[in-house]
Nucleic acid binder design. Structure first.
Lengths: 146, 146
DNA sequence: GGATATCGTTAGCACAGCTAACGATCCTCA
DNA sequence: TGAGGATCGTTAGCTGTGCTAACGATATCC
């Protein structure tokens, strides 16, 4: 098997694994009452501090109209707050509310718990190998963005 | 860091990586003119031979009404064909057309190519490590289904 | 043969993604 | 300084995915 075929096969398996992983985790997301896109956007706002709608849209790799609706949904649930920028009044700054932070951490914990449980079933050595693999995966995904 | 915290952190990073990976690949899916769910369902039909709508829905972890529409979409594009079962006339058997097979392979190649390119940038040793990680990931995901 | 179960579809809802178009605001520079 | 162009966020309208509830057709069980 050449390196090139390896890469194809590996890419294909990785793609499939990612799809099935997220399908499993989506069930946990549902339990939190927040959809995956909302949860993901909320996470960026909580950890990335206040940022504009456009920045948030770029961070989530989504167009502004889509982000407008996601933010509107989060705002209606009281998880996020729109705030006009004084310097540039075209901008809308978005920041998390205390409730938003709370919900995020609770939801994240619940969502990841199922996966963490499965990870804990591995041998210690396997966990280390998986961690290395995930690190490489992150590098690979990062290099795809360029 | 305890093994438990390791598992949490690893699970979280894995979740995030999977989300971003699929967001990148979705752009390639769009180029094929087929959405991810349709591509995924078509793949099951092509590789899994003719199967009923209910079986397909279970395989894709989706409810029957959702699969009805996915199949209807694929059928309108001529990629798939509905066929009544003679033994049990409640059943609808679904099978791929030659065009469906062709499109699937072309689409899969295009979609995975971007990822494969990124994988090829890794060192040979890193590819082996990533492959091991993906194998473990597949095991982990499989163990979550039970 | 009549009750019950199963299969796929239809109807109707919520949400996410897109493009096009628009108003408000800011910036440039003549 | 003030007119024209650029940028930001929103609205409108389309497609597609996911769900539940309800229904008709068919099969099965007693």
């Amino acid at each position: 098997m050449t390196k090139g075929q390896d890469a194809e096969t590996l890419a294909d398996q990785l793609h499939s694994a990612a799809i099935h992983l997220l399908r499993q985790l989506r069930k946990e997301d549902d339990a939190s009452g927040l959809s995956a896109p909302r949860l993901s956007a909320l996470s960026v706002v909580v950890f990335g501090g206040p940022l504009t709608l456009g920045e948030l849209a770029r961070a989530e790799q989504v167009k502004p109209p889509t982000m407008t609706r996601i933010v509107t949904g989060l705002e209606k649930e009281g998880l996020v707050k729109r705030k006009g920028d004084q310097r540039d009044r075209r901008l809308t700054r978005i920041e998390a509310t205390p409730k938003g932070r709370k919900i995020l951490f609770a939801g994240r914990a619940r969502r990841v718990e199922k996966l963490a449980i499965a990870v804990r079933r591995l041998e210690k050595k396997e966990v280390a190998e998986l961690r290395r693999g995930v690190q490489l995966l992150r590098d690979v995904v990062a290099s795809m963005r360029g």
